[in-house]
Design a protein around this nucleic acid. Structure first.
Lengths: 120, 120, 120, 120
DNA sequence: GTGGTCTAGACCACG
DNA sequence: GTGGTCTAGACCACC
């Protein structure tokens, strides 16, 4: 389930959610994507909104569609690797920019992650 | 200057930008805020948009307005400290959530910051 | 094999493909049409989709069906001549309309065909 | 006004219509595009449908948007030249493919254009 | 006024 | 069942 942020378009958040799933390999190369209607029901949004996210994924060749059969993750592992890198860079860039704006340097960022993030 | 992200309302981005300035102490307790018109001109947006960000800052008591004299950063240092913590937590939470969604653990996050973020 | 255009229904594209075959006389008056299943397999589509194209051809009397024996091209040469003219007109009309919309006149159209189309 | 072909998505037809306008220089570099609502009204379609075509144009950098002010044709003349070439090639390719499928050679295509297309 | 997002609900093509 | 298109109508951010 996604906690939607009201300030960002829902379809963009779904798009990112799906990209993360693929990068995390919850959805692997060639895997069938959840159907538009199914995911819409699960996320409690209109099917059109999910559809929009899927179309964006398709136009960046991250998923492809077989008519009447559903959508599938690309078979191209390189594409997925690129996605992983691009997505990570985007996330880190936003984080580091805002932290720098607040006056944190690299060491302080690491320190703060060490103390606030749970897990190994 | 701000690099605006088309998917987030501009007034929210200006709001965050100003909060970061205050946290960084570019704008200190009691300092005069730039005038709405001036900032609007600098950021190349409509004054209404800046006004909206100021209104939000005022309603969270981060700035206050003296009639005819402009807006000023709160005199309350505790308030600013709270802002610093809240903002940092928000930024870190978003970062760590997305990175976890991608399958990164704490160590990998630190590694990636070490290699991608410039500076000391 | 057909290069399917995703923006046009597949059965329409198959319909046109078959009309063109008949006009070209790859399929002559009275010739047996390929079986629905066979063509479906060759084109890698569902038999229903081919069936739909055949039904359209039949309802315009371009092919007819002998029960248990398959489908056949009409024996009526006039019908085929009409088809040739109609189809050619349709294709030329669409081409010239779009080229005119782009600002090409007749001479420029011919010039462009001369330079881009291969063959004698 | 557009004569819509029922077998092609309306937003694709609007997309092509606008591309042709730009290539023909009815809409020049930097020109304001008709507003989404205005065009929707003129074409008697839902604003969402026009919006979709505009979004496609924007994502291929043919138009750009100024918040609250409207959409504008790119300032980049090279982009428009590319568009002209791509569009022409696409139209010619479809034409020549279908004509070849019907058994016409290059000379016959030219002949047929000479006799059927009006104008100089 | 401008573009942009979203919902509810319908219909289509394809398997 | 699948994805894809379209409408009617609402609400938002921005100028």
């Amino acid at each position: 389930m996604i906690e939607f942020d009201n300030n960002i378009p829902v379809y963009i958040q779904i798009l990112n959610f799906l990209k993360e799933k693929i990068v995390k390999r919850d959805l692997k190369e060639g895997d069938k994507m959840p159907s538009v209607r199914e995911l819409a029901k699960e996320l409690k949004v209109n099917p059109n909104t999910v559809q929009r996210a899927y179309k964006d994924l398709e136009s960046s060749n991250i998923i492809f569609t077989k008519r009447g059969m559903g959508s599938f993750v690309t078979e191209d592992k390189l594409k997925i690797n690129d996605l992983r890198e691009d997505l990570a860079k985007e996330i880190i860039l936003e984080f580091s920019t805002r932290m720098k704006n607040m006056g944190f340097n690299k060491e302080e960022m690491i320190e703060v992650i060490n103390s606030f993030v749970e897990g190994d």
